[in-house]
């Protein structure tokens, strides 16, 4: 009972951190009422998570939108700055960004809390996981390179952009007049993501998010990482049952799918799992690696 209470309070803390991160990234509060975007200098910096820069509250730039803007310009420019930032976030944090800093991740976490039919494990799940790499390769990189001025991911998929669009639709009549088939399509995608998020844990992160795909590639090298002490493990499978991303931390603690939510760490009765930043190697602590 106490353990369950403790777990609930930790989940509450995690949601609190996610909410603070979402608020910081959308701190232009008056924009939510006026519909006017923030235009200050902070918007030169890309935020780590998926947060559309057309959201009235956004104070930073969207990394995926910015990347497509460089790749899909009339004159190709290598996206040094945006790619550097993505590499920086990925190397430092890996998919911890997805677990704690992404506003769209928070939205999905909240949706999954709603009591509804839940089915988090199904046969095609492991195949669908590859879809996000296709989205990254085709919609974020290839199509913008081939069709200039057309950020395909933003245009046809991004549900964060659609939620931003909904704000503008409510606040701006001129935007309302321009709505057409693309908006209806994006609304359908958003609807599917929202309904899926009631049933499956973080379906967008698992199957579609190009940022998740990119950061996932760095989970094995990132400074923030998982550590599994096999000698302490009693093979009770508590961590496997606790993981809503369907990762087995005893087999692959730094899996591309792990969003570092820490559910497995808390579930382990023997303390065999830890997560934290890599420490610089010193003579005093040759084995200890995690914070």
């Amino acid at each position: 009972m106490d353990k369950k209470k403790n777990r609930n309070s930790i989940n509450g803390k995690k949601l609190g951190i996610q909410a603070v991160a979402a608020l910081i990234q959308n701190a232009n509060f008056k924009g939510f009422f006026s519909g006017k975007l923030y235009t200050g200098p902070i918007k030169k910096v890309c935020v780590p998570g998926l947060n559309c820069y057309s959201c009235p509250g956004a104070v930073g730039a969207c990394p995926i939108g910015s990347l497509q803007n460089f790749l899909g310009g009339l004159k190709f420019r290598f996206p040094y700055y945006v790619l550097g930032l993505l590499l920086f976030f990925g190397t430092l944090l890996g998919r911890l960004v997805c677990g704690f800093l992404c506003p769209f991740g928070l939205l999905q976490d909240l949706l999954y809390l709603i009591p509804f039919y839940k089915k988090n494990q199904f046969k095609i799940d492991k195949y669908l996981r590859y879809l996000k790499f296709a989205v990254l390769g085709i919609f974020v990189i290839l199509l913008p390179l081939c069709i200039p001025l057309s950020p395909a991911f933003c245009k046809y998929i991004c549900p964060s952009g659609t939620t931003s669009g909904l704000w503008h639709v409510f606040l701006n009549s001129s935007v309302r007049k321009q709505l057409g088939a693309i908006f209806q399509w994006k609304l359908l995608v958003l609807g599917i993501v929202i309904v899926s998020a009631l049933i499956v844990y973080r379906p967008f992160c698992k199957y579609l998010c190009p940022l998740g795909a990119f950061y996932g590639l760095f989970n094995k090298f990132s400074f923030f990482r998982m550590h599994f002490n096999e000698s302490a493990c009693v093979h009770c499978q508590a961590c496997v049952k606790a993981c809503k991303m369907n990762v087995d931390p005893t087999k692959n603690p730094n899996s591309m799918e792990c969003i570092r939510c820490g559910d497995c760490v808390r579930a382990c009765p023997e303390g065999a799992l830890h997560q934290g930043f890599i420490r610089p190697k010193t003579d005093a602590s040759p084995v200890e690696e995690e914070a």
Partner: peptide
């Protein structure tokens, strides 16, 4: 980032 991205909002 300072202009409404028409593609993003649909």
């Amino acid at each position: 980032a300072v202009r409404i991205c028409m593609e993003c909002v649909g």
